[in-house]
Amino acid sequence: MFADYTWAELGSIFAMQGFAGLILFSVLLLMALGLAIIFGQMGVINMAHGEFMILGAYITYLTSNLFSTYLPDLFGIYFFIAMIFAFIGTFLLGSLVEWTLIRHLYKRPLDTLLATWGLSLILQQLYRTVFGPREVGVTLPDWMMGSYAVSDSIEIPVNGMIVMVITLVITIGVFLFLQKSRRGKQSRAVVLNRAMAGAVGIDTARVDRFTFALGCGIAGIAGATFTMIGSTGPTSGQLYIVDTFLVVVFGGAASLLGTIASAFSISQAQSIMEFFMSGSMAKVLTLLTVIVILMLRPQGLFSLKVRR
């Protein structure tokens, strides 16, 4: 199958395909980061995670409309403001959901799963009622469009690079936050030993609410970022949820490094296979491989030793 191509063409194909894989990696990692905090750290199954992402995307859409109508001069930078709005909006909704729903269910993980699924149905219908059933897209400022030509045959899209940079920044930010900041240390302490954390004076209920809301907020940023590469519809969130959960589980639930490694291997495997077969078969094979590996190694790629 390679005979028809020259070496130079093959090199370009692999470079482009590899770059497509890197963009997919950024997308998967961004989606999984929020979940890695909520599911990996807290053990809460949030089936509405996709809907939080979509909320972020819709907030970005609204912000872009707002800027193009009232502040056309500043349209070039609206995206970063939209990201902040998306974070705040999803963070607030996350705290509300934790307070009304999740906090009653910490000891019943399977029930959380069903309740958050119910929440995701309600949010979907809400989006459909408010924004209509059709997918919406945002207009990007000029500097975010087009592509950068590395050589004659290799072109790299600018929005793809921006997605990668955002992912990098957010990932480092989350890592530093969890490792270094006071809040981050508290939330890790609560995960490791709730009773002891409470005994040394950490308000575990407040830490729980903050951690959950933070995960939702990061989902919102992920959603905002998605608007650069795709359109948003009421049910878009559901498409991502299985992939996202598999990334987190495959990485080893409580390990941020594992999440990064698993997002990388899943995305590269899929984009390389997509070149040889249809997209759906590539996806089937990737997911199957992940599941088989998980059956052989249920704790995931990287596992944190925790006494429970």
Binding site: G43, I45, P109, L110, L113, V242, F245, L246, V249, S278, S280, M281, K283, V284, L287, L288, V290, I291, L294, M295, P298
Partner: peptide, 24 residues
């Protein structure tokens, strides 16, 4: 000894795979 939540997620993923396969 995989059970509980992990079992739920993996069976859900298998359902997703089956659907993609049948449609594809």
């Amino acid at each position: 000894r995989v059970g509980g939540v992990y079992f739920a997620i993996i069976t859900q993923a298998i359902a997703a795979i089956m659907t993609i396969l049948v449609i594809g």
